[in-house]
């Protein structure tokens, strides 16, 4: 079957073509203008960040050879030819890694408890008073926006060097992040059960306990597990400022050029992070079914 494609007469076509070209040209012009602004911003930024392409190119070899060096033992062999030598400090590192996991676990738990206590006040639909909601929200925002490692720096001075500062820093940051996520879950909860319970003359607390909590607890647990995953990464570097965990050992190795140690510690950290990701993913899948994982 053939279809005849009718072509419009010349004058009509010309007018439409012109309109089309004009529309495309306007779009292109806007794109070009946006691009020009962006490039200008990049140039200003590269001056601000002291970008020096010459150092970059002359030292780029260093970057590649850095990985060559961290994969070489003191004896000049490749690291994987002598795993015992490569992971010579595994007892110490495993202990520090355990400390890192504990820091993130305790920090996440404290953070979740505080976020749990605060989030009903921050949610639009359950907060008892607007001023309370405003205060709690600003508080959570503050805890979330100041990076965890900055809290760690300050806590190291207040509480002394060691894992306690790290735990508290992670706990505060988690409170901020989880409080926001938790309150968003509460805002999406169905309000009909609340009305039902309210109509029996129940207090605010009972409303939260019997109407909201059953709807949201699965979401809470899912987000808390996700946060634990993130906190393991965070805890692995929080030792850089002296707040406990494997980071302390890593920064010493990097700063003092103990090359093969750097790669060994990095490998253990990456393996642990992978392992935790897989485990929490599995736990979340088991607890909440496939749909809750996304």
């Amino acid at each position: 079957m053939t279809i005849a494609v009718s072509i419009l007469p010349e004058q009509q076509l010309a007018a439409m073509n012109a309109a089309y070209r004009k529309a495309v040209a306007r779009k292109r012009l806007r794109l070009l203008a946006g691009l020009a602004v962006f490039v200008a911003a990049l140039i200003v930024a590269s001056i601000g960040a002291e970008v020096n392409l010459r150092t970059f190119f002359s030292y780029f070899g260093n970057f590649v050879s850095y990985f060559d060096r961290i994969l070489t033992l003191d004896s000049g062999q490749r690291v994987w030819t002598n795993v015992g030598e490569w992971f010579w400090g595994w007892r110490k590192w495993l202990k520090l890694l355990g400390e890192t996991l504990l820091i993130s676990y305790v920090g996440t738990l404290i953070g979740s408890v505080f976020a749990f206590a605060l989030n009903f006040f921050a949610a639009e639909n359950t907060s008892p008073a607007p001023w309370l909601r405003f205060t709690v929200r600003r508080l959570l925002e503050f805890a979330r926006t100041v990076p965890g490692i900055v809290f760690a720096l300050i806590f190291v001075i207040a509480f002394g060097l060691g894992p306690m500062a790290g735990v508290l820093a992670i706990a505060i940051h988690s409170t901020g992040a989880l409080g926001k996520l938790f309150s968003e879950i509460v805002e999406n909860a169905d309000m009909k059960p609340v009305e039902g319970i309210r109509s029996t003359g129940a207090s605010w607390l009972s409303c939260m306990r019997f109407a909201i909590l059953p709807q949201v607890s699965a979401g809470y647990a899912s987000y808390a597990l996700l946060r634990f995953e993130i906190n393991v990464r965070e805890a692995s570097v929080i030792g850089f400022v002296g707040a406990g965990g494997i980071g302390q050992e890593l920064i010493v190795a990097i700063r003092k050029f103990y090359y093969s140690d750097v790669s060994a510690i990095l490998v253990t950290i990456i393996a642990t992070v992978f392992l935790i990701d897989i485990t929490t993913g599995w736990v979340r899948g088991r607890l909440f079914g496939k749909e809750a994982r996304t």
Binding site: A49, F56, Y59, E234, I254
Partner: peptide, 29 residues
């Protein structure tokens, strides 16, 4: 890509400081 993501930004910063020296350029990289 996974292994690059497994290493924290702060660690990459330390590595780049070894390569291009202290300063914001290491941060960019």
């Amino acid at each position: 890509l996974d292994s690059i993501r497994g290493v924290d930004t702060l660690i990459w910063a330390l590595v780049w400081i070894n390569v291009v020296g202290l300063g914001p350029f290491a941060g960019v990289l």
